[in-house]
Design a protein around this nucleic acid. Sequence first.
DNA 1: GATTGACCTGGAGCGCACTCCAGGAGTGAG
DNA 2: CTCACTCCTGGAGTGCGCTCCAGGTCAATC
Lengths: 127, 127
Amino acid sequence: MTGLTISDAAARLGLTADTLRYYEKDDLLLRAVPRSSSGHRRYEQADLSWIELITRLRATGMPIRDVRRYAALVRAGDGNETERLALLQAHRAEVLRQLAEVQSHLAAVDYKIGFYEEILRSAPVPA
Amino acid sequence: MTGLTISDAAARLGLTADTLRYYEKDDLLLRAVPRSSSGHRRYEQADLSWIELITRLRATGMPIRDVRRYAALVRAGDGNETERLALLQAHRAEVLRQLAEVQSHLAAVDYKIGFYEEILRSAPVPA
DNA sequence: GATTGACCTGGAGCGCACTCCAGGAGTGAG
DNA sequence: CTCACTCCTGGAGTGCGCTCCAGGTCAATC
């Protein structure tokens, strides 16, 4: 019997078994995960690699619906690489935009932190 | 009559009037926003400045409940600056952690993008 | 052969952060 | 006076991404 059980796969991927079933039901995977004779899922390397990729897309904020579109493109086979690239590039641009935004807001928070550090330095924890 | 109406304040802050009412009801503000004689909110500079700050906290991913805790500390007045600083520093550390995580996942996505760019360069849009 | 434990399914429920709505009131223009 | 507009309130509804549950199957262990 080859492949990992759902709980082993979940542990390895840093997800829960529920999430893995949810991704499969929601068409985020490239194929239905193969089953053992008793009907239990057995995750193979190809499944794990794909889930690892979409986990990265999710971790960078790509919505489920876009992951699904990307999966559909890959499932459709060769010939739509231009579309796949466009989708990934659009995502990349959005991530960079968000990173810049967060960094600029963080700078203002840093300033506030500096302010509190300063007043605590000059008047440390008054009795 | 001094101060901005809720829709003017919303426009200036990049939020909606609904969100401003929601923040107030949810104890994210330092005080109940003052009202005109007819009961309409009139946002003063102090209100706008505070909302601007918490918008930055929100934009960097601080949950509403933590913003509420921070607001409560500020509302409580002088003497808890150590706690305020700790809260902001914890948030800062979390933001930096997330930035690093997103950047590392983005690097993998970039790699994938490079892959597609490469195959499209060597076999551009086959008829 | 009874129990235990991991897995299965369909579907309900949840936490978050808004967002929308109904019903009502004050204000200014024509 | 009527109309249009903006605001008010309390509360319901929404979208997202899971997360949990009931009821059931199957394989291995005692």
